[in-house]
Design a protein around this nucleic acid. Structure first.
Length: 401
DNA sequence: AGTCCACAGGAAGGGCAGGCGA
DNA sequence: TCGCCTGCCCTTCCTGTGGACT
């Protein structure tokens, strides 16, 4: 069964180079930004304390990769001088890892080599242990908090205040925070007290254009694919598609990699434009179905009721009020619960679940006012036809027709 | 100008599971 | 074993809201 697979010629040279988390030797079109971050962190080399740095920019603009790239170089330079520098990278979006204040500090302690239980300790105990651990190390500590806006939105900005305040109490060490966020207005929403204690520096990453994406893809394809496996046309197409998605380089790399996987699976030795189209479809499909599958059954029931109502509305002939409102969704949801023997949640909770589905990009929910007929949310599905059909069949499997 | 609707969404707290230390 | 702590999911209660209607 595997003979064919083994005999088949590999089109990848180093697949890791096509992953968005791979840090390349050279980062194209980010010279200025790299220089800015570098100069902000450079005081570490002379034993001074750098300011906190905040990096803003939409998805796939190279924020994380640039931060990691500079940190790597800084670590090498610091090692040459014989100073002490520790770096901890934490993605605040990682569920069950750093999505609460407790988990963030538990994770920081774990990264510093301390043993901490996942739950059970009072948060102030964790703070004390963290403080003691950092101060004992007698070194500079750089904490990179990726997607920091997610955590602030969830638990508030107190932890940032506490994190920066620790510096005032420590005698031998110093903490620098590098916050990375997609939310341009992140800083404006911070508490004044936090803003002043952060005294941060800011850098904005602009989205890549199609030409810049093409250069990035070319570099990566050179490392990732064997010679002749991808041509200029294929790369241009990937770049153009990703440029439409707000210049997202991560998306461009995913497209290029998945297209290669599809070609490989079809036993072809080169990636074509057709493979890119298939890759795009697959990426969209995977994102949605995985999201839906990972939701709790109550959320799935809410989504199913939205799909059912949407279908009912579009199948009706003549003029009908096609708007889908929270109340309608709740009614359908309760009947689905009834037939499936699930205890229905309250309307208040369903309102939150609708908001969560909106955040996930599966639906769009806009608050509207119908005058004396009340204020509600107008809900529309945000799925393409083929993905909707797949999602529907997934939910039918779960709840029946 | 005031009323009213159908919610949105904030705040508080309950119940549960699970860990720690005495 | 018990009390205290955590996170998480949920309910209950409440105030706020925008615009059609009176």
């Amino acid at each position: 069964m595997f003979v064919q697979y083994i005999q088949q010629e590999d089109i990848f040279q180093d697949k890791k180079a096509l992953s968005s988390s791979f840090v390349p030797q050279k980062i194209a079109h980010r010279d200025l930004e790299l220089q800015q971050i570098g100069s902000m962190l450079a005081p570490v080399l002379k034993g001074y304390n750098p300011n906190n740095v905040f990096i803003y920019g939409t998805c796939g603009t190279g924020k994380t990769i640039c931060a990691k790239f500079i940190i790597k170089q800084l670590q090498e330079a610091v090692a040459q001088k014989g100073n002490n520098l520790q770096v901890v990278y934490i993605n605040c979006k990682m569920k069950k890892v750093a999505d609460t204040e407790y988990r963030l500090f538990a994770q920081l302690l774990k990264e510093l080599g301390e043993c901490v239980p996942d739950t059970g300790l009072p948060t102030d105990v964790l703070y004390r242990r963290f403080f003691e651990c950092v101060d004992q190390k007698n070194s500079q500590l750089i904490i990179i908090l990726d997607e920091i806006d997610t955590l602030v939105r969830k638990v508030g900005d107190d932890f940032l205040y506490n994190l920066t305040r620790i510096n005032q109490e420590m005698k031998k060490s110093h903490i620098t925070v590098i916050g990375i966020t997609n939310d341009i207005s992140f800083r404006d929403n911070l508490d004044l007290r936090v803003k002043s204690s952060l005294s941060e520096e800011e850098i904005l990453f602009k989205p890549y254009d199609a030409r810049q994406l093409r250069d990035i893809l070319k570099d990566r394809a050179k490392d990732g694919y064997k010679a002749g496996a991808v041509d200029e046309l294929v790369i241009s197409k990937c770049a153009a598609l990703a440029a439409q998605e707000h210049g997202d380089a991560r998306r461009a790399l995913d497209l290029l990699r998945v297209a290669g996987e599809i070609a490989e699976r079809n036993a072809e030795n080169a990636v074509t434009e057709h493979h890119i189209d298939m890759a795009q479809q697959k990426l969209d499909m995977d994102r949605v179905t995985e999201t839906v599958r990972g939701q709790p059954s109550q959320s799935q029931a809410v989504l199913y009721s939205i799909i059912k109502l949407n279908e009912k509305n579009t199948s009706q002939k003549g003029w009908v009020d096609r708007r889908l409102l929270t109340g309608d969704v709740f009614d359908t949801y309760t009947s689905i619960c009834k037939t499936n023997n699930i205890k229905p949640l309250t309307q208040r909770r369903i309102s939150d679940l609708i908001g969560e589905l909106d955040m996930l990009g599966v639906i769009t929910a806009k608050v509207i006012s119908n005058g004396r007929y009340g204020r509600t949310r107008e809900i529309t599905l945000a799925l393409k036809e083929d993905i909707l059909a797949r999602t529907k069949s997934l939910l039918i499997e779960r709840f029946g027709v």
